[in-house]
Design a binder for these strands. Structure first.
Lengths: 395, 395
DNA sequence: GAGTTTTGTTGTACGGCTGAACTATTGCGC
DNA sequence: GCGCAATAGTTCAGCCGTACAACAAAACTC
């Protein structure tokens, strides 16, 4: 993402090498010394020293006490991401909760507020005001701890433009044409406006997976009331031209299938959406996904049937996705993560059958590893990623 | 594409600014002067001068005779891409022809050889030897004219890996597991090995469209025996994890449809592949697409019906593509370009109906503008793009 | 034809990286 | 216990590429 569009001067070198050194520290498997970073980046130890000093001064990197290695020589100073120094803020409004979560560079949750409650057909102004209150609490708590908030990302279940400013429509919230950033008007303790961007919930949830052991490129599917997806290529979101990709919920599974709210017929959502799963299992629309798991454990025929049908439909849609976008790993999140023991092999089987490249490289279908409210974590991580990607702005 | 992975030194500045200046000259709407380039890039006139001098010395940029403007002041020296200096070589093996085409930086064809003939179920060694002969002729002709060949791209109708080295499978050629680069063993006049990369035919054909008036992001669909696609984002190919994306021919249009060679049922190829179009119109499989056009002009019912059916299926598959990848422009190439007057509005209608984002931003469906053998042009252009993107390697 | 304006070039200053020399701190052998 | 080797980190001259400012070149204007 380094913008090749601007003239490069001396300080551009600085910025680029700062980023390089930061990346070397943050992506190392074990805390590296300055010398290790020099070896890894190709820079000289002299240069690395000055750059590391800058990162330490800026609170992005911390020095551990020198530990004497087994080898001869002066003991190295291990470098690690600085905890409790800079934090990213993840915000989310979803159908049944809203919340705010602050993560530090170590990935630790340093503050969090989550409030449950149905937000079906809610008023954006009122809900954003409530979210703002949560965010202000979290920011205050973070700053009371001596930390700085680098920015925030707001996850919403709908179509968000690629610039991260405008929500076009969120059917399940009943929102349309909302610009949440000025509405939230978040500020740091000293009154400076906070950098806030909006993004699709499934896409931010996808980024949360990067905290765990996933390949650099994968497809994340969030099974909720709607079915969305996030495409991650080389540890970065691929957003498409306007940020509206991954709308797998409206892939046509069977043109002769049931009518969908979008106007077409036989959309995936009508086979594998949360409401359909609950209804097919004989549960009320407000029941938690766990209720389906209970029925499945008990061997309930209707539930087993519904879930199997959903798995096949999801598999077909994902096979199409694999053929069109080419990914070798599919992470099933949201409701599908909970139901993974029942849908995983069904999905995997159908994908294997229909993905054109499957004979050369099998597709790995796995459950999501990030915990609940993954979009909060993903949003906070995205903020921190942007800090590490351009440390010059923060030192 | 600037590799953020390497240490930046002084010469990195040079490389980046060289690229910037080259881009300013190549992408300008009118030949810019050194001063114009300075204004456009943000560099000083002094720096631009030294960089332009280098590009001129390297044969990438040429100076036109100074033309006195209407304004006061010393007349500017207009800078243009240098013609007949550096050329890119496009190569292609397809089902019914093979060819080689050399383009210079102005986009002019400076040498070309195309040979027709069915290559169905052919022997890769023998065919590549024939292609090699064509390429050697073209290279010799180019070098006899005092030009240098910067590299070559080979277009093949099949799955090619993202590194551009290996063809996994090309069903319609009957090829599998081929590594064409060592087989071709192309060299420049002084014996140095030529940089050759392999790519999918539809993807290179997509790049040919960039010569014309297309938006920076679009989806190109190549309608041939198979149906492939190239995704262009911001004037660059999006290849997916392994280079195997865009396999739209095997999107399921109707699970209850006819069986496909890939094993699944109701694939797009069974509705909109060239062979199906010909058969449905009552023509032999070897007939040219133009024969269908003749029947359509004559009002032939079978042909009209077949083409309309194909249009609807293609529209459905493209709507899925738009929902998953998010593009606002679709370019119909290959057979579909010739049939555009009959399929265009059908495809557009179905896409408009089914693309989720269509209400906010209509999808533009248009015919391809590049002439015949677009992949040859696209391949050659891609070579030249890589030269302009890293001029430091060529000066 | 002198003044003005714009283009392109020349020379100095400065910032950032390199490379080599230097200091700091350990382990090891005797 | 002490010298030596090894490794980490720092200091400083040198180099390279850009900025900035002054200058030369070549038009237009009145």
């Amino acid at each position: 993402m380094p913008d090749g569009g601007a003239a490069s001067r001396q300080h551009t070198l600085r910025e680029r090498n700062l980023r390089l050194v930061a990346a070397a520290v943050f992506e190392a498997s074990a805390p590296p010394s300055r010398a290790d970073v020099a070896a890894a980046t190709g820079l000289t130890r002299a240069t690395v020293s000055t750059l590391v000093d800058r990162l330490v001064a800026g609170g992005l990197v911390a020095e551990l006490p020198p530990v004497a290695a087994q080898k001869a020589g002066r003991p190295a100073v291990p470098l690690v991401p600085a905890g409790r120094s800079v934090v990213g803020l993840g915000l989310e409004v979803n159908v049944d909760y809203l919340g705010a979560r602050a993560l530090d560079l170590l990935g630790d949750v340093v503050a969090e507020r989550v409030v449950s409650g149905s937000l079906h057909d809610s008023d954006p102004r009122e809900v954003l005001a409530r979210l703002r209150a949560l965010a202000v609490e979290v920011i205050a708590e973070v700053e009371a701890g001596g930390m700085r908030v680098a920015g925030a990302r707001l996850a919403l279940p709908g179509l968000v433009d690629v610039r991260g400013a405008r929500l076009e429509v969120a059917p399940n919230l009943g929102w349309s044409s909302v610009e949440p950033v000025p509405e939230l008007d978040l500020r740091t303790g000293d009154g400076a406006p906070l950098d806030v961007e909006v993004a699709n919930e499934a896409k931010l949830a996808a980024l949360a997976e990067l905290a765990g052991d996933v390949p650099p490129s994968f497809l994340y599917v969030s099974g909720d009331v709607g079915v969305g997806a996030g495409i991650v290529v080389d540890r970065h979101l691929f957003l498409g031209e306007r940020g509206w990709n991954g709308e797998i919920g409206h892939v046509v599974v069977d043109p002769a299938g049931p009518r969908c709210s979008c106007g077409a017929t036989g959309c995936l959502e009508q086979y594998a959406g949360k409401e359909v799963l609950l209804r097919g299992s004989g549960l009320p629309p407000s029941a938690p996904v766990h209720a389906i798991v209970d029925l499945l454990r008990a061997g309930d025929d209707a539930a087993l049937d519904t879930v199997r049908r959903a798995g096949r439909a999801l598999g077909a849609a994902l096979a199409t996705f694999v053929n069109l976008v080419d990914v070798s790993t599919i992470v099933l999140g949201g409701a599908y993560a909970e139901l993974f023991d029942w849908v995983g092999h069904v999905v995997g089987g159908v994908v294997e059958e229909r993905a054109l490249a499957a004979p050369f490289a099998p597709v790995d279908v796995r459950p999501a590893a990030a915990g609940p409210h993954a979009a909060l974590t993903g949003g906070a991580r995205e903020v921190l990623r942007s800090v590490v990607a351009d440390p010059a702005r923060w030192v």
